[in-house]
């Protein structure tokens, strides 16, 4: 519905092999930082817990062996925590799941093991010089909010299934009327979106927006809104796009 040449949009259009276009909602740096913060807290908690457990086991002897286990645990946790969780069916670490985001291939498919390894080994560079400065700059420089590791691994972080909105079936009281002249597809789309969302807004807001279209409706205020709704209903009812 958004035109494919939209300048900047969190909806990224991807074409599947079946010729259909799907739209991915990519997640930006803010929500990803929050997810990372949660994961970092989990990591600290796990390190402390592991250190305490190994320390307690050490009391019963073989202290050095438990220290070795702790080192191995830290090594694997440090480098492969994300890989492990991205390989589950959710494709997300606990922090990402909590924030409702997940890792996916750029083509919308599930993230694969090699991709996950690449993006998480390169996290070391994204983190540099401190607190993901390189990664942050990288997310700002491309349309899909990819950090450097994502670019090499060909992955994106997207919103996990957004909650299905309750379909609104509101009756709009207006008689359908054709627009005064034929409208292009993007124009039709805008008007259709307007009448779809209008029930969610206050009267003032509806009128304010409808006023912007006074060149089309030839009226302002409540009358303009009424005419706009009439055109919208006309477009919604039938053959809106045949002429494009």
């Amino acid at each position: 519905m958004t035109s494919p040449n939209a300048l900047a949009d969190t909806l990224q259009t991807v074409e599947l092999a079946d010729g259909v276009e799907i739209q991915l909602r990519v997640a930006g740096p803010a929500i990803r930082s929050l997810a990372w913060t949660i994961d970092a807290c989990i990591a600290v908690a796990c390190y402390i817990a592991a250190a305490i457990i190994m320390g307690m086991l050490g009391v019963f002897g073989m202290e050095n062996v438990w220290e070795g286990v702790l080192l191995l645990f830290m090594f694997f946790f440090n480098w492969f925590y994300n890989v492990f969780f991205e390989m589950t069916r959710h494709g997300a670490t606990p922090g990402q799941r909590f924030m409702g985001i997940k890792v996916a291939s750029v083509n919308g498919g599930p993230v694969r093991l090699p991709q996950s390894l690449i993006r998480n080994l390169l996290r070391f560079i994204d983190f540099m010089p401190a607190f993901y400065l390189f990664g942050f700059l990288s997310t700002l420089c491309n349309q899909r909010f990819q950090r450097l590791g994502d670019l090499v691994a060909d992955t994106v972080v997207v919103y996990a299934d957004p909650k299905p909105a309750n379909p609104l079936r509101v009756q709009i009281n207006a008689t359908p009327q054709p627009p005064p002249h034929s409208l292009s597809r993007p124009e039709q789309a805008v008007i259709l979106q307007f009448i779809e969302r209008a029930p969610l807004w206050s009267d003032d807001r509806r009128i304010e927006l409808a006023n912007l279209l006074s060149p089309l409706t030839g009226a302002t205020g409540p009358e303009g809104l009424r005419r706009l709704c009439a055109i919208g209903l006309y477009l919604r009812q039938g053959h809106p796009s045949k002429k494009s």
Partner: peptide, 12 residues
């Protein structure tokens, strides 16, 4: 202290 600890350190 132990061979295992050495091994773990080298991995890490």
């Amino acid at each position: 202290g132990s061979n295992f600890m050495m091994f773990a350190f080298y991995i890490y």
